[in-house]
């Protein structure tokens, strides 16, 4: 506990800027993973417990692509597309087999894949910490904001994640595909009777959710060390965010993710040992007062 340090930071503009920018990237990474989980759950009604491992795969794909080409744009694409394709395969051959089974079976399929993916990553990339370092594209002087400095990559990550969120929202809200998806979420059978291949829609949505996890991984690669099993923490955090924000509410997840990100970054100064506890306390309070989450609607 160090309340003086926290107070000192909160009264110094430079410190506030640094911590807010650090909090924003934590929040945005959690948000991307959480929105993938939310999207898949909203349409397919299954929770993809492997989403954290997908994020991990995104990090490693991005690392390899960066090592091969030296271009961060390529490694972003590799993370997104690679994990997206993997997600589609996972959905078609494994997850789709347990849609009608009970939660236990779905959970076990995911658990099996968490075990397998962690081990595969360890075998292919080794068990040690790997670092990408800051890509050349972002080797620029920091941006000066209100007495403080923000690394350009932090700004890029935040803007990019918001852009992705807007794009996904537009895809679901404004396009014909989005209409079909929303209809399938309400009544799959009816949509299928209308001559639409709902299996394809399901696979695409699962793929899209996986792309979000992969993107999060690729975005995290320059600022995080890669290690097998790294997906688990972000899975838990993205779940906490979903519960606080309200299940199925992307907007709620967005706000909650920023909140958690800020708690994490300011917490490292003021209460380093209690950040987890504070996160859980907030979740517990939300659950007690409004079990559906801040922005969640009562399930139909």
């Amino acid at each position: 506990m160090n309340p003086e340090a926290l107070l000192a930071c909160l009264t110094t503009p430079a410190c506030i800027v640094t911590q807010v920018s650090a909090g924003m990237i934590i929040g945005m990474l959690i948000f991307l993973v959480a929105s993938g989980v939310t999207l898949i759950f909203g349409v397919l009604k299954v929770v993809n417990f492997t989403h954290g491992s997908f994020y991990m795969l995104g990090v490693y794909f991005a690392l390899t692509a960066y090592g091969l080409t030296g271009s961060y744009a390529v490694s972003l694409l590799a993370g997104a597309i690679g994990v997206g394709l993997f997600g589609v395969v996972f959905e078609r051959f494994f997850m789709s087999k347990v849609y009608n089974a009970d939660v236990l079976m779905q959970l076990l399929v995911c658990y099996a894949f968490i075990l397998i993916l962690d081990d595969v990553v360890k075998t292919v990339w080794g068990g040690d910490f790997l670092k990408m370092g800051m890509p050349e594209e972002f080797a620029l002087p920091p941006i000066k904001v209100w007495d403080g400095f923000v690394p350009p990559f932090y700004a890029f990550l935040t803007v990019f994640a918001v852009l992705i969120a807007v794009l996904v929202a537009a895809l679901l809200g404004l396009t014909r595909f989005g209409k079909i998806v929303r209809a399938a979420a309400v009544n799959r059978q009816m949509v299928s009777v209308l001559g639409i291949n709902t299996s394809l829609v399901y696979a695409l949505i699962f793929g899209l959710g996986s792309v979000l996890a992969g993107l999060a991984g690729a975005l995290a690669a320059p600022v995080r060390s890669a290690v097998p099993g790294m997906g688990f923490d972000i899975l838990i955090e993205s779940f906490i965010v979903t519960v606080i924000g309200g299940m199925g509410s992307m907007g709620g997840a967005f706000i909650a993710a920023i909140g958690i990100g800020l708690i994490r970054s300011f917490g490292t100064i003021g209460f380093p040992l209690a950040t987890e506890g504070v996160m859980f306390a907030i979740m517990a309070i939300v659950l007690l007062i409004k079990p559906t989450g801040l922005f969640g609607r009562r399930a139909a």
Binding site: F94, L108, V109, Y111, A112, F113, I114, L115, I116, D118, D119, V120, K122, T123
Partner: peptide
């Protein structure tokens, strides 16, 4: 490859 084998058995 403990994880892979256990995972495949579970699957």
């Amino acid at each position: 490859h403990h994880g892979i084998v256990m995972g495949v058995v579970l699957l």
